[in-house]
Design a protein around this nucleic acid. Structure first.
Lengths: 229, 229
DNA sequence: GTCGTTAGATTAACAGTGTTAAGTGAAGTC
DNA sequence: GACTTCACTTAACACTGTTAATCTAACGAC
């Protein structure tokens, strides 16, 4: 066996071990969140000792980060496919993106909790996600819609302008906030505070928001748009 | 000393001990979140042994719950005072409520993280908060604004209607989602994904959202209000 | 063939966690 | 004085992440 081949095989074996650890970590994390992921459980599942993991990962945080990065990629792919079936620049494309956001969050709750945990143990993870796990897609869809004319263009952007934030960025952040807020409230159980007889599903709620997002909630358009205290 | 007086004094002493534990727990929780709160640290701060806490609380979860309930009360009071300086039914009242929501979250980050953690160890806590730590205020403000005519009334409510959700509930949930989403994205560090040159402050962003919330983002009102796929 | 090196894994141990069980001392009651 | 109750302590258990030291097998070099 040549050295190169040996190295390659070894590298493959190492990669396999790493992948096995990541798989086990992913399962445990999806099942019980970051607290349910313990080094010893991961090791047990893989069939090695707990400390062996430290040969491949720097520690638990590193292991979690790697899982999170992978989850962000899956998340991005999920959003992309949901979006692609609608024409560029269309409002449908954006609302499909929103619904996919909610669906992924609800179907992969433990994942989503870790992705957007408010306890970012290591905020640097966000930098490592290639192509931005979602925002770039939204941003582009919004920019297209503005260009096509489905979304109205700038009407004297407000206070945030100071930091050279574009109108498309503002609209994107706004839409992101709405979808994200809805689903995080649902996931933390706060929605139950609104004792609306039969709790509507999150998706139904989101669809009910669309008219507000499109047309606003003010009595007449252009009315009290600037109630800046 | 009479029995009643002794009982009373003892009850007071017990209440003082409980309060001391709660105070220490609150400080630790505010400083380092739920992970930073350890029974031994609380005990050390109070000057007792860790297991003594179990004489007053069922366990760590119970201790956290009690702190959370108290935090919700503070939160509700904070929102109320911020709101009261604006006339009933006014849009200003609602936007002041939103800004107060953000301000509290940003100034009491560890608190807020625990209040609206997506890992609700004990979702029953939400039931124990008297008067609904925020939603009721919003709901009433929205209902007033609709009645006065600052917010437009129902225009054929959408899919969520199935569960007899009122228009005021829908609008409230919508507004709550937007503010909550904005602040949770900021707290988890996701806002940095939007590489908008100089990141605007959360409050500035929120103020920039007001025109969207009031007038919508669609090119023309009533246009594509129902893009239901 | 033996030396040294390296990768990959192991066991033992440490400091920390929440929690339980058993015991202690003081106070009050009968 | 005996009994009970309260507030609390110490000891211990089963976990946790992590470090240090050790072992084994494979490899290249001399």
């Amino acid at each position: 066996m040549t050295t190169a081949a040996a190295n390659h095989e070894e590298g493959q074996k190492a990669a396999q071990a790493e992948a096995a650890i990541l798989d086990a970590a992913r399962d445990l994390l999806a099942a019980g969140g970051v607290d349910g992921l313990s080094m010893r459980h991961v090791a047990e599942q893989v069939g090695i000792s707990a400390t062996a993991i430290y040969h491949y990962f720097e520690g638990k945080q590193d292991l979690v980060n790697r899982v999170v990065i992978h989850a962000f990629q899956r998340f991005g792919a999920y959003l992309t496919t949901a979006m692609e079936s609608h024409p560029e620049g269309s409002v449908e494309r954006i609302s499909a993106l929103g619904e996919a956001y909610l669906t992924f969050a609800l179907e992969n709750q433990a994942y989503f909790r870790v992705l957007f945990s408010m306890q970012p143990k290591d905020p640097a993870v966000f930098e490592e996600v290639p192509e931005g796990g979602g925002y770039h897609l939204l941003r582009r869809a919004v920019a297209d819609a503005i260009e096509v004319g489905s979304i109205r263009a700038d009407t004297e952007t407000g206070p945030a302008e100071a930091g050279t934030v574009t109108h498309a960025d503002l609209v994107s952040m706004y839409l992101w906030s709405t979808a994200h807020g809805l689903v995080t409230l649902a996931l933390c159980g706060a929605s139950s505070r609104c004792e609306c007889g039969g709790l509507p599903s999150v998706i139904d709620l989101y669809r009910s928001f669309i008219p507000f997002i499109a047309g606003g909630i003010a009595a007449q358009r252009g009315g009290q748009e600037e109630p800046d205290k």
